[in-house]
Each structure stands twice: as C-alpha cells, then as structure tokens.
Design a protein around this nucleic acid. Structure first.
Lengths: 341, 341
DNA sequence: TTGAAAGCGGTACCAA
DNA sequence: TTGGTACCGCTTTCAA
C-alpha cells in the first residue's frame, strides 16, 4: 500500500483537487501569467499536499527543449579530462542545464552513442579524439549546437583549444639551453589532436634551431606503463638520447621509472619532460606544461550556452595560454624556478 | 534555407511519405511486431531519406522511462571520484542508460539540484557527503531507485562502500610495528563518511593496542594546501608527533611538503601515511591504502540496474576490500614491499 | 482571471 | 499485417 504506488501525481490531480483547470495550475507554478493570489495560494497548497512534481518529460516535450547538454570525452583517467569536465559541469549547472556525459573509452565506433546523446540534449561539447569529424558534422547538421574542445576545427563550429605550439617551442628552447643534442619523442601523434600539435611544434622548433629532429616518435599510449615500455625502447637506442620529450605526464612518469630501472639518473644521464602538470609531476620533479583545464571546460560551457540561446555570431576560435613549468627533470638549474607548483 | 530548418522530422512525415500509419512506422523501427518485409523496407528507406530520428522525449514519455540514470558526487578533483564515475559510466552505458552527473562542489544546499536530477532519471547513485539523508530518503520515496556509494546506509537502500575499517587497523598495526608512539591524525572526520570511519578505526586500533590515541584530529580540507597547513600545525606541537596519519593522499602530500620545509626528513624525522593510492603517491613513496574505485562505480551501476528493472530483492550492503600499500614514507623496511604499485 | 483544447512526438492496444 | 486512436504529462494560445 506504499511500495507499489509508483503512480506519479500529475497536474490533473492537482487541478482537480483545487477545482481549477490544469492551465491554471501550470500558470501558478511557473508564474508565467497572472493568477489570482488566492488561487495561486490554493494551488501551491495542493501541490505541497500532494507532493506534486511536474514530469520533466512532459515539460520538455511541451517546451521543446531538454534543458540539458552533453560532453563527450575519451576517458576520465588522469586529471586532465576530469578537470575539464568539472569546469564544464560547474558552469553548465549554473546556467540551468543538466549535464550528460559520454566516455568513449577508446572504443572503435562511438558514433552511435554520440548520435544517441545528441537526441537528449540541446547542445554538446566534443573533446579530442573521440569521434570522427563526419559524426561531429552530422550532429551539428541535425541542429544540435556543438562546441569543439581540444580538437581541430570542423566546419563552422566554435572551437577552443590549449596552446600547444608556444609551450612546445619554449620547452625545446629551454632544453637547447641545457645543451642537449639528441632528442627522442615519446607519444603517438595520431592518438590525439593535442599530441599531433605538440609533436609538430617540437620538430619545427628543433629544425628552426638548426638541429635535426628525431626521425620518428616512439609511439605509445597515454598511460604510465606504455611510457615505461616506450622509454625502454628509446633508451636502448645508440647513441642514447639525452632527452625524452613525452606526450604527457603519465608517459613521462613511466619513462622516469624506466630510466631508474636501467640505473640512469634523471636528469644527469637522461632528461625527461612531460605535459599537463598533473599532481604527481610536482612530486616527481617533472618539468612539464601546465594547461588551464578547468577554464577550457568552463569556456566551452559558456560558448555552448550562447549558441543554444540562438546566437548566430561569427565562429569563435580561441587558444588558451599554457605555461611551461620548469622543475628538475630537464636538467640542473641554479635555483628551483618553480615557486609553489 | 538550410540554417533555419530546425524543424525535426517526425514520425508523421515518415508515415505519410511511405503511405502507411505512424503505428506501422513505429513497429518497423523497433521491430516490436511483425511488419511485412516489403513495408519495412520502404519505411527504412524513407527514414534514411528523410533522416528521421525519433524524438527522445516523445519516446520516453510514451515508454514511461528516461533510459538514463544519474550520479551525484562532491567533486571530481583528485582521482578518486573520477575513477568511480568512470567505472559507473562504463557499466551504465553498457546497460543502455545515459548518464547524468551532478557535482555538488561542496555547495551549501544541493537538494534542489538533486531533486531536479531525480526528475530526469530512472535511478541514481548518491556518493559520500553530498546531500543530507532526508533528501536521499525523499528521492527514494518519490520512486526513484537509489544506490548509496561510500556513505552510511539510509533506510532500506542498497549501499556499497570500501572497507575503511580493516585497512585502518592494518595501517595502525604496521605503524606500531615501526615502534611509533605519538600519532597525529590530519583530516576532518565530519567531512565525509569515509573519513569518519577511518578516524574511528584509527582510534580504536590504537586503543585496542593499549596506546593513547590523539585527543583530537587536526582538521583540514581534502586538498594539498590544507594538508600542508594542517601538518605545519601538527608538527609545531610538542612533543612532535612521530607519525602523521592523513585522511587521504592529497593531505599526505601536502604534509610531506610541510615536513620538508621544516627541514624534517620523511620517514626518519616524521612518518606520513595517506589514503587512496593516487598516482602521485607512488612517486612520493607514500604509504597508503588502495581502493577499488572503478569497481565501486561499476557495482553501483549494476545494482541500480537491478532495482530499475524492478527487483524487490532484499537490501544489498557490500563492503569492498581495500589494500594497504606500504612504501617508504612510513618508515624503513628491509626491502621495498610493493612490487609495482 | 480562468478554461477548453490543440499540440509536443512517440508507443501500443484494439479492431479490422 | 495494418490502421485508428487513446494515452504519456505538460505548455500555451484563444476565447470567454
């Protein structure tokens, strides 16, 4: 007699209870039109008494909007995506939208899921290497406002990225100042747009400085173990590289472990750098690049809101600044350059 | 002529195009009833041609379900929640449910948002210290199946937690073996159910061993900076504590920094332990406790699915095992006990 | 100020 | 095998 009454209270029951039409109840509840104060009072009383909660589905169907938006990302391991998603959620929630998440987990074909997501939201953010461009285009074409984050622009969609170029160049310059000659790059430029950019900038910076970049990157996935294995391969080369420039911090941390295993000291025997400035980087003394992750997510949420509100303004493209964080893994310095990481 | 036709194609247009009723289109699409092969073919052709995508809202309203579920957590910074959410998302998605997230960000009163979330899902998971018990009870009463994760049971709701007790005791025992006498606890037992348990078990273990537990914990928030400040306070005490048992790894890492600043060596001058086994812990040599985070989320998702499917089985309560990870920060050992953290 | 009723876009039962 | 139609629960226009 209590467990089974899953029957939701509807607006009809409220109306009946008060002795008015459902239209009046609706008005009283949303304050969209004038309702006699006395009537409103009675409606609210009945709502309270019956514990009426309007059905979101009925509401959305009638309003023609979900009041929700989604975000698609590859994964959530590692602080990078978590922080971005968090920044996104915070702003989206503030703007009154619920947030749907979709992790592609590196699955072969997430387009079905992405399209499915598109049917449940008023707008969505698509991050990095998750789905093919044509799927993104399709989503946009359906009429779902879309903002791209940390991936190359597609059509006329708003796109926000972090600056891989400048920092990669600064990093190389810094390493050159240390006097290094032989560089290796650990990471797969095909694995994500960010790495593609970082690797390209890395090569260009070396070339511009009159150095010869490595023939090819030592390809590996984004995790510690992959970095460990890749570093082992790289360090087996002869002559041994003096610096391992890694696609991200996880890879770099794995590389540090590999170096230690081989009895190599960092940075005396081999220098190592990462990317992302995860918390562990600080404790490992890892030289890396800090990205404004929270800000990336927050900005995406705001832009999306504008588009959902119908803004037809020109396409927005923005590259948020990043910051080189010099610690000890890249070589000896006079003093610790970092104040409080 | 292309930008403005936000008009979604409806099932009516498909039906008209094919010259059948909407009922037939619906059947052809969901394969719920027999449809003449030829008819089905024509329907699918029209669907393709018109790029028809059924409205999720219409569908859900008619079906009486959202095909979505939610998860409420305090935050996403730090790997703990990220991993749990990821494990949850993965399973939920596999089971055909979209996932809505809600981060409470430690805001004063998230009950509005939680209730709002409850209107959009068929079931939800509520983690740790996010909302008051009565809100959870209310959500459950509304008829939204709810699973509790890492928080004390409420009513007859399924509850899954990680084992704080056993590990806390093991940890204390291990520290006692090191011969320490003076313990301090860094963290706020009121900040989360997990810390409440850990602190209690910590005290009990000391008491059981005939030692005197600290008069009170050194309260601090869950982040590195808070841990840093708390450690400074704790280390200023006289006599100085020999061990700082920290509520989680972030706090412990902050404490390590504080110790270093004061010229104290870990573990020679002061031992430090954490909780969670975040990536940085490995590189900091931090003795800590590993939790099955992914598994927590995944299990919650499965249980929720059962309840959403209408299971009236007895309340489920499960405590997943955790694992003490001994590294160097707790004191000298014959050999590194950890194989590959 | 309020009510009647037409949607919103589907699903599924009942007949044919 | 297919069609007609009654919902699902709410919003909003048009009249009264």
């Amino acid at each position: 007699m209590a467990v089974q009454d899953r029957q939701q209270v509807t607006i009809y029951e409220v109306a009946q209870r008060v002795g008015v039409s459902i239209a009046t109840v609706s008005r009283a509840l949303r304050g969209t039109d004038y309702v006699a104060p006395e009537t409103r009072r009675r409606v609210l009383a009945a709502v309270e008494e019956l514990q009426f909660r309007p059905s979101r589905l009925g509401q959305s169907l009638a309003e023609g909007r979900h009041a929700a938006n989604g975000i698609v990302f590859p994964d959530l391991s590692g602080p990078y995506y978590s922080e971005v998603v968090l920044g996104y959620e915070e702003v989206a929630a503030e703007l009154g939208n619920s947030v749907l998440i979709l992790a592609t987990h590196g699955r072969p074909d997430p387009s079905r899921k992405v399209l499915e997501l598109a049917r449940r939201v008023d707008g969505m953010v698509v991050m990095g290497r998750t789905v093919a461009d044509d799927v993104v285009a399709q989503v946009a074409e359906i009429g779902v406002p879309t903002v791209l984050l940390a991936r190359a622009a597609v059509g006329a969609l708003d796109t926000i990225t972090a600056d891989n170029d400048t920092s990669a160049r600064q990093l190389v310059e810094h390493l050159l100042e240390h006097g290094y000659q032989r560089f290796a790059y650990l990471g797969d430029p095909d694995s994500s747009p960010d790495v593609t950019d970082r690797y390209r900038a890395f090569r260009e910076a070396l070339t511009d400085a009159g150095r010869k970049p490595p023939r090819s990157p030592v390809r590996c996935a984004f995790d510690v173990d992959a970095g460990h294995r890749a570093a082992r391969r790289a360090l087996a080369g002869s002559p041994r590289p003096q610096v391992l420039v890694c696609a991200n911090d996880e890879v770099a941390l794995g590389a540090m472990a590999a170096a230690a295993e081989q009895g190599l000291t960092v940075p005396a025997d081999v220098a190592i750098t990462g990317w992302d400035d995860v918390m562990a980087a600080r404790y490992a003394g890892l030289t890396t690049v800090h990205q404004p992750m929270r800000e990336l997510g927050a900005t995406a949420a705001r832009w999306l809101q504008d588009r959902m509100a119908g803004s037809q303004a020109a396409v927005r493209r923005e590259v948020l600044p990043t910051r080189l964080v010099v610690r000890t893994s890249c070589g000896p310095h006079d003093a610790e350059k970092e104040v409080r990481g």
